[in-house]
Amino acid sequence: MPIVFFKSKVLPLQNKLYRLAVSMTGNRQEAEDVVQEILIKIWNKRDQWHLIQNMEAWSMRLTRNLSIDKLRSKHRRTDDIEEAYSLSDNNRLEKQIEAKFTLEKVSNWMKLLPEKQKIVLHLRDIEGLSYKEIAEQTGIDDNQVKTYLFRARKNLRNKLKALYENE
């Protein structure tokens, strides 16, 4: 029965999918909408389940793609995310960051990371996946995974340093 499989194999992924959507969109309400949409989408594609080798990787990929779509449509109304990051020193968002270090700041920096860096950092530092697992879930080459991770951490470290040097 598809519903039994859905309840036992797909629904338990909801926390992982939700965390990913939160990291990608930076907004819990939006993340909830994304995960709900994805779970229903997975159910509606139940006639294709037999073709999917790794349900978790597939679900994560769907979540990532939908989160990116949501983020892009949101940023079309404001600024481009990559541009926002490269211009971050003069950026309005950056100016809003308070002097004292908090979790919220890292969360804001995460939001500004380029998409690939963001997903790789999320899967490594939040979900604790190996490079190989990250490569499987994202479709990014194994070696590239390490490069994106290095860049993401370097970006955040630079922000961290800048924050403390300004204090």
């Binding site: 926390n15 939700y18 965390r19 939160v22 909830e32 270090f101 890292v106 939040i126 955040l156």
Partner: peptide
Amino acid sequence: GYFNYFRSQGEIKAP
């Protein structure tokens, strides 16, 4: 705060 951010994110659960 940096490392605690990732730890706390890992504890987030879906509503």
